[in-house]
Design a protein around this nucleic acid. Sequence first.
DNA 1: AATGTTTCTGTGTGCGCACACACTTGGCCA
DNA 2: TGGCCAAGTGTGTGCGCACACAGAAACATT
Lengths: 362, 362
Amino acid sequence: MNPKNIRIKDIATKAGVSEGTVDRVIHNRGKVSDEAAKKVQLVLDKLKYKPNLIARTLGKNKNYKIAALLPDHSNDDYWKQSYDGIKLGEIQLAQFGINFSVDPFFFDMHSKESYLEASLKLFHSKPDGVLVAPLFSFGSKPFFKKLKEARIPFILINTQLQEVGALSFIGQDLFKSGSLAAELISYGLTKPSTFAILHIDEDLGNSVHLQEKEHGFENFISQQHKQQGHLVKSFVLGSPESETFIPQLREVLTLQNLAGIFISTSKGHIVAQLIKQSSAHIRVIGYDLIRENLTCLQNGTIDFLINQNPMRQAKLGVQTLANQLIFKKVPPPLHLFPLEIITPQNVSTYLSHEGNQSGISI
Amino acid sequence: MNPKNIRIKDIATKAGVSEGTVDRVIHNRGKVSDEAAKKVQLVLDKLKYKPNLIARTLGKNKNYKIAALLPDHSNDDYWKQSYDGIKLGEIQLAQFGINFSVDPFFFDMHSKESYLEASLKLFHSKPDGVLVAPLFSFGSKPFFKKLKEARIPFILINTQLQEVGALSFIGQDLFKSGSLAAELISYGLTKPSTFAILHIDEDLGNSVHLQEKEHGFENFISQQHKQQGHLVKSFVLGSPESETFIPQLREVLTLQNLAGIFISTSKGHIVAQLIKQSSAHIRVIGYDLIRENLTCLQNGTIDFLINQNPMRQAKLGVQTLANQLIFKKVPPPLHLFPLEIITPQNVSTYLSHEGNQSGISI
DNA sequence: AATGTTTCTGTGTGCGCACACACTTGGCCA
DNA sequence: TGGCCAAGTGTGTGCGCACACAGAAACATT
């Protein structure tokens, strides 16, 4: 630190060339003789030149355009938080004088066509970087292929797709997420018990991520509790508005030795009340700090929430794109968030912590 | 965003003065006529001028010197992580071209004299900002008073002291931390049970923070479980090396209906094995992701850990000072970290998450 | 009236980098 | 021999800000 930072100028002097040449070597702009390039590279390595990232942004006066492909959140608190996350990222980058506008492109989360249509629109806006929540894994391959061909870096959040060439995936380990739910739901139980997994208003076939959670849950129960004789049953419930919803739920509640219900999405608040009315001893585990779930946590109808932190995921996505585009920092291909356990006692500490973060940080 | 950012130059033009005058108004350097100052301030407010923080650091070519007062960590993984945190903060700031050296000043965590001595040394090094883990609350007031008089901003981590004039406190809500431990330790229990709180190798009188945890724990048990007839007993155990340590521990283990033991520090690993040997049904809750505790979590001798995240606390401390000194961002007086619950199932997600964070972020 | 003093104001420079531009070579052809 | 091009090289400018310094204006002192 003390022997003041090495600048391009220093490199140029040591290598016996001009700053311009060093610049060309650093940025691979060509138009440098092999001889000079070699000399510069040598000094560069020897002095371990690290560009001053702050100065770099100052000079570069480009307005970066990021596009985000997200589900419409008019009726969904979870995706609302994602949206807030990208906006927060945008604002905080602006504070540092980085021109980084993030344009959202929304799609109907129940319509694949809408998803594809939005992705097309997005592509035509010619963004410098893209953030996607790829809810529809099938059929979106061409979109990613086009992005790759146009050399537009893209980041996936929430749902991981293999081998589509994403710069990075930001989300959680869903298998472990399921295991964690199983661990909590069975904690301290000594009698053989039955647990139900509830998928609400989701097409399980299209939702690889929910299947992952289910597998993780089942795996834990069978591995750790084989000797205990626990049982896991999985249910797909349709839209809460449909007539069959309540009857289906009632059926679940008649299960023998039902000790806990695990709701695989953030929709736990819809059924929590009914479950606890049926029996206060049935444990309920859901996802995410959305408003309705918080209420349930407070009044005791939900025991644990696992926080997926959509806001932080989205914010990090924007920041990662900024780091890539401006600072040329290569992100890890996988950024898995911790599986945060929320209880009535620690929930307030999570709520106050958010937003508290501002300023430079890393 | 689009109507390109407002620069000092723009303000100057609009106000009909020179850039220098605007600069003087912004920085309160005086030497400005009331008339000019008023004009500038008006335009400043109207256009909502926000300085470009990046450009600000570039121009300012000062080497900031931060001093950190920390316990010697040669034998302590917890404080080792704090140290790593300040170093990480330093490195990451350097990446952005910010000259910000952090010098540690260590003290023996069992000796108040050593603490005071180190604080004196620190003061004489004339730092621009200070980070303190004020383990000895009493007697350190004069030190903080001197810092205040010298107008050196200081931040407290880990232990909160009221009314010493700290720029900010970074840590956790210890009362809630105790409540959380109580919630977890009593989760799902139906029979009246006894819980023990263990303070290991600490002078409880000097450790306000451990008392806080204890009160939180007791409060939860008495509030939520009065009807259940639970009981809480608190014990102060001396150094694990002392001859009385094991006998004292054995005495704890003979408690009637002992259902759980809460260790108030990160030293849980010392006793966990012995506890579970005594009875596998006694729940054990400790603190922090230090190596030995991780082993215990994995082999099942510790059920839950509450993560205090000393590394992130320390890193944030450094960043907060940077924000204050360079960007003049005023931090919140209290930055309480979330109370993270660690279990065997989610521990790996916390470990991989750390360090993963680099680049610009907020 | 000339000088000194204080108060205020404008201009200039540099931070480290990116990038545009101008320039120097040497080789090639007419 | 002059002209021309390509390849390689060096210089200059600006990003937005902080700060030093020079300068102008208003006022006080001899």
